[in-house]
Design a protein around this nucleic acid. Structure first.
Lengths: 297, 297
DNA sequence: TCAATCGATAGGCAATTTCTATTAAAATGG
DNA sequence: CCATTTTAATAGAAATTGCCTATCGATTGA
């Protein structure tokens, strides 16, 4: 029964019988049969098919909702019983938006000190993907913006506020300034994240609000790629202050506060809104609540 | 998996492998094997055994807690999907304390008018049993005292307050009075419920508080039995006002308010504290909220 | 029209589940 | 103290279920 519900969850995120089967580690006929058995046991069609996956029926959507809950509870149960016997152990899977990747360490390092047997998997994802994966129980927690997109059924712990800096060589134009305006920044050729990233949309919005068309020379979904370009002193970028600080500034590279306006956005930990949480997730939320005051400015 | 968790729930309430198996419709070796498989899959012993059932281990208690939740959710899911297709249908199982049995009708009659395809099973139980059955998901809802024993993990809807009357023949001693005191009632030979019933304990307490040792001539767990005795005019009893009214008074039988003190206790609907509830249960709670104002005095 | 994609179906093998029958251990009762 | 009863575990057989490979039919797109 629970296996079948997992089939349904996989189908919801893959929207494709074959791929969903692969994710579940079974063959496509097995997954098809599993879904069909669910349908027979409920006496209702759950999936609209027409030689290909065409989404769920209304009943299917409801079952999906229950499946998330039941599968989540079953996992939490296993984890809790295991923790009772062997202490906190297992793997925490996180997804973080690229600009928050460098902050993950502030959570994982103290967590590991407390619970040395917990392993981590961290993905770099867009904020939309983070929420989708959270919804489908693909990940245990996410690090993303709390104050923009609607978050859905999650528990959120604010961690810090993202503020923006112009990263630019000291000898380049604007390189000697104490502050720059968004309008000035918009005139500099920039390296930014790709447009599917919310950080890019936020920054591009702030730049365009000045009435100037920004000049985006290079875009990537990798912060390392952006930084390695900026480090040469021949490119510039806009990035969150904490990230710039973490990446380290050379004497030729400056991170200049951008004003007018001094924009900021809240970044936080998001976990599925389940009560009770899995022990691993609960410990992560506890850790986040502990370190949040140390990060706020 | 879910079947195994049901085994565990049955074992929790029967405290006996054989009987639990029977309840689940399998043989004893099957249930034994099921529990053992759960233990193996968790890597922890769940049940203390020594040639007979000796309760659960701490881990077993935790798994039991999760099992209640998961099994409850699985049932709710089935019911909800069925309701989406065929409207509210199925069977609602209730347990009520004997003095509340006559009030069940005020809930079931309007419920049935709204949802004609729902069937009912109603048990007469002690208040302790009601809460136990609720805990183990044996019943969908209960009618019992809300203000005495601790209720546990339930949602409660107050319905009415139980007030006490001396049921006595008009030509018997005290039969002509407008009110009687508890002290006076304690001197009349009475028919009451058996001492395992909370109503009996409440009334006996009120009687004894006067300093008089009550004279309880006959006891039974059946209100019908008590009433049929009192109807002869040769016996007396103490019972809730609403119950006396429902049973009907003859011209030779009177229900006299008992004062000093004018005691009362709240009776209400209790359902498992689950969010969301099963559709059948949710509709019952809605009905209870509707009729509660009509019953309060 | 032809190839590719996608999901359903058929048939066979393997794993699992469940049953009956029996055993071992403990509790009960004379 | 011994015989009987009760209780749960075990062994082995039978049935069921689950999953895989191979294939088909339908749809899509070139």
């Amino acid at each position: 029964m629970i296996d079948r519900l997992e089939f349904l969850l996989a189908l919801a995120r893959e929207k494709h019988f074959g791929r969903a089967a692969e994710v579940c580690g079974v063959t496509q006929p097995t997954l098809s049969a599993g879904v069909k058995q669910l349908e027979e046991s409920f006496g209702v069609l759950l999936v609209n098919r027409g030689s290909r996956f065409q989404g769920f029926t209304p009943e299917g959507d409801r079952v999906l909702e229950w499946a998330r809950r039941i599968v989540g509870d079953a996992r939490a149960m296993r984890q809790e019983v295991h923790s009772l016997k062997h202490g906190l152990a297992g793997r925490l899977t996180l997804s973080a938006i690229p600009t928050a990747l460098a902050m993950v360490e502030t959570l994982t390092t103290p967590y590991r000190a407390r619970h040395p047997n917990v392993q981590f998997t961290v993905y770099s994802r867009t904020s939309i993907e983070v929420l989708g994966e959270l919804e489908n129980l693909e990940i245990d927690a996410g690090l993303t913006y709390l104050d923009n997109e609607p978050l859905g059924r999650v528990t959120a712990v604010p961690l810090y506020r993202e503020r923006y800096r112009l990263l630019v060589a000291a000898d380049a134009p604007l390189g000697n300034r104490e502050t720059v305006t968004w309008a000035e920044s918009a005139r500099v050729p920039l390296c930014l994240l790709t447009p599917d990233m919310q950080n890019r949309r936020i920054i591009e919005h702030l730049l365009r609000d000045t009435g100037v068309d920004p000049n985006i020379m290079l875009e990537s979904d990798s912060m390392i790629l952006l930084y390695s370009h900026v480090r040469t002193g021949r490119w510039a970028s806009v990035m969150p202050a904490r990230l710039a600080a973490t990446l380290g500034l050379t004497d030729t590279l400056r991170a200049i506060p951008i004003v007018e306006p001094e924009a900021s956005h809240t970044i936080g930990l998001v976990v599925p809104a389940r009560e009770p949480m899995t022990p691993l997730t609960a410990a992560l939320v506890a850790e986040a609540r502990l370190i949040a005051p140390l990060l706020s400015d």
